[in-house]
Design a protein around this nucleic acid. Structure first.
Lengths: 211, 211
DNA sequence: AAAAAAATACCTGGAAACAGGTAGAAATAA
DNA sequence: TTATTTCTACCTGTTTCCAGGTATTTTTTT
């Protein structure tokens, strides 16, 4: 690991990104890029024969999920550092990658110096984030902390129909219920989402992928 | 436009992508990259002084929306070809960009040869897509065909506040307007979205990424 | 300078939503 | 078999929304 040269592999299906990473890394003379891969299976085939120190891994590949691939890599070479590369910075995704063996999480808007710094941190065995990710991880956002309301079957059903633009009486009609019953369910929904009207509820429900 | 050299500008906040695009374009000797920009405002400032033939435009910039920026560009230089660059290939987004003056829509997994081919097509005045986008555009899906409402500034503002769960009077308070005015805007919103209540509007707005 | 679009504000009346309860039957879990 | 949860349904008000207008001022475009 602490040889004179660090070996690095790039796994990303975007030629633009591959080229860009290579260019950013020419300023790091002690890093050798030993391979560029566009699919997870290609890369794993290569990994079975060769070890690398660092993997820059796009987590949205066409063939396999970033999580699965990360686990595969660590199974083959536990000492390899995997730096996840992504466009999205959701806390949950970052945590998930770390949980499956990634050493760091970088957004693709990273700069050259930052990238090299992160690689060096990873070589020292540290967990590393790009700047934007650091911020997100440091302040757990309100919105992501509150737990997802557990809705009953009926409530989910009614939530869906509300999203379709139906009124209480419309819903009562299609579900063969009393409008008063539907109102009761609607009230529970508002309570569970901790909001005061359907507009806010819709946004919350969609954000939580309940619709 | 048909000089010996084609001028091209890159607008993308990802250094990796900027470098990658530059590298891919070294194989096209008749294209000169006249500028790389990381924000929309930077680019517009430049554009006010210089014309370019082609703009490679990332549609998810930190400061302004791709749609707005595209319109700005075409207003300044109607003959400039804007090629939208994106990671996502939703029909609605493609249509929206075309509607606002883009000449093409490219996914970031495009290859070097494909990119150069698309640029040449754009120079010939043709609408051009990268391979993956072509496929998606060839099979229209029912639900994505309805057009995106063009909202005014005020309307966008009010839409946002409605999504936050505010009532008409709340909104009037925060914007220092008469509740009656807010009601008028709210009515226009419902009309433009062709829905009967905010629940349906929220879903539509979120689906169209207007929130 | 004229025309079009956007932003402002008003009116009326009916429909729907929201807030605060209570309460019995049915299904599930402990 | 108790508990607990879910589903059902009702009641009383108040608030907000929605639909149908009209109309003036300001801004933007042509």
């Amino acid at each position: 690991m602490s040889d004179n040269k660090t070996t690095l592999a790039i796994v990303d299906d975007h030629p633009i990104v591959q080229e860009g990473l290579q260019k950013l890394l020419v300023n790091a003379p002690d890093i050798t890029i030993v391979g560029c891969f566009t699919t997870g299976t290609d890369f794993i085939r290569f990994l079975k024969e060769h070890a690398v120190d660092i993997v820059l891994l796009d987590i949205s590949l066409p063939d396999v999920s970033g999580i699965d691939l990360c686990r595969e890599i660590k199974k083959l070479w536990p000492d390899t550092s995997v730096l996840a590369l992504s466009n999205h910075s959701e806390r949950s995704m970052v945590l998930q990658m770390l949980q499956h063996g990634a050493t760091g999480y970088l957004l693709k808007n990273i700069s050259g110096e930052e990238l090299i710094a992160c690689i060096n941190e990873a070589l020292n065995g540290q967990v590393t984030f790009s700047k934007a990710v650091k911020e997100i991880m440091s302040r757990p956002s309100v919105n992501e902390l509150k737990d997802v309301p557990r809705l009953t079957k009926r409530e989910k059903e009614i939530l869906q129909l509300i999203a379709d633009g139906m009124t209480t009486t419309d819903i009562a009609g299609t579900l063969h219920l009393s409008p008063l019953t539907v109102e009761t369910h609607r009230k529970s929904l508002l309570q569970k989402f901790e909001v005061k009207n359907v507009a806010a509820m819709m946004r919350a429900a969609i954000a939580l992928k309940l619709i």
